[in-house]
């Protein structure tokens, strides 16, 4: 019997269509080549996370509305963003397991003809790569191993924490992204405080603290000689790539570390060109890195 092709509704969230199509372009290229079918998610809205600080029920209902759309389509959700993943995954779990919460939220959803039933699952790109496609198949797709590269990973928070709710990977010492990076042939270096947050969620109210957090991360990865930082979240990516010139100005220093979305790194190893992976859209250009591969 032919192996069934994994099929997902792709949930793009807000940051990707607003600023980071490079992540989307490279993800689609790589997943298509690895045999994952992506279906466009119709009528979705922001995952809900940005509204949680002001009103928890608004977040729950916005997230549940998305889950209901996916239930109607009869497909599991694939997210590229840690924030979207954490939100949709946790709300899905809470509403499946807790009757009181489910009834409250269904009371709101009823007003526009929806009901949460709990029939689908939510995964992040990292989980689709590691759980559905698997290390062997990815390894087999690598045609141009990036053996000259030394990089560092930033897994981020909402894909692993809180541990008791997510239950995947090791939040203190995340390993999945590291293993995925190593499949490309690149060296993934250990560095101090790898699990530290990017700080981006508070940038709207305070810049100094997240910039200091990011600067510390750059110091640590530069200490071990990493040539690039690899991310799996558009929000973390914005902090380290788009904001890098501002961090440099704030600390009057030169950083110059390119920040690649993981599917860009994997795509290079699979033989795609930098143009096909929208690498030219990065703020910090990985010129030297591209020369080395």
């Amino acid at each position: 019997m032919a192996e069934e092709k994994p099929r997902y509704l792709i949930f793009l969230g807000c940051v990707i269509p607003y600023r980071l199509s490079s992540y989307e372009v490279s993800t689609r290229k790589v997943l298509q080549a690895l045999g994952v079918e992506l279906v466009e998610m119709p009528e979705y809205n922001c995952c809900g996370f940005p509204m949680d600080p002001v009103n928890h029920d608004t977040m729950l209902t916005l997230a549940a509305r998305n889950l209901c759309v996916a239930e109607r389509e009869g497909l599991n959700i694939l997210t590229l963003c840690n924030g979207c993943f954490g939100t949709l995954y946790k709300v899905n779990k809470t509403l499946k397991e807790e009757e009181e919460e489910r009834e409250k939220i269904n009371g709101y959803l009823k007003e526009f003809g929806m009901e949460f039933k709990g029939t689908i699952e939510v995964k992040h790109l990292v989980h689709v790569l590691t759980e559905d496609i698997g290390f062997e198949k990815i390894k087999g797709a690598v045609k141009k191993p990036l053996t000259n590269l030394r990089v560092a990973q930033h897994t981020g928070c909402h894909i692993v924490r809180p541990k008791k709710l997510i239950g995947k990977d090791d939040p203190e010492d995340p390993k999945l992204l590291k293993e995925l990076i190593r499949l490309t042939g690149a060296k993934c270096l250990d560095y101090m405080d790898e699990a530290e947050c990017c700080g981006n969620p508070i940038i709207g109210v305070n810049e100094t603290i997240p910039f200091s957090m990011a600067k510390e991360k750059f110091d640590h990865i530069m200490d071990v000689g990493a040539q690039a930082l690899i991310t799996v979240c558009p929000f973390c990516h914005m902090m380290y790539d788009l904001n890098q010139p501002r961090i440099e100005r704030a600390f009057n220093t030169k950083i110059g570390i390119p920040v690649l979305h993981y599917p860009q790194l994997l795509g290079l190893a699979m033989g795609f060109t930098p143009e096909e992976l929208a690498i030219n859209e990065l703020r910090v250009k990985p010129t030297q890195l591209l020369e080395q591969i």
Partner: peptide, 12 residues
Amino acid sequence: LWICTTCYTCID
């Protein structure tokens, strides 16, 4: 109260 990044380290 508004400068927690929700990294959830404290919970873990």
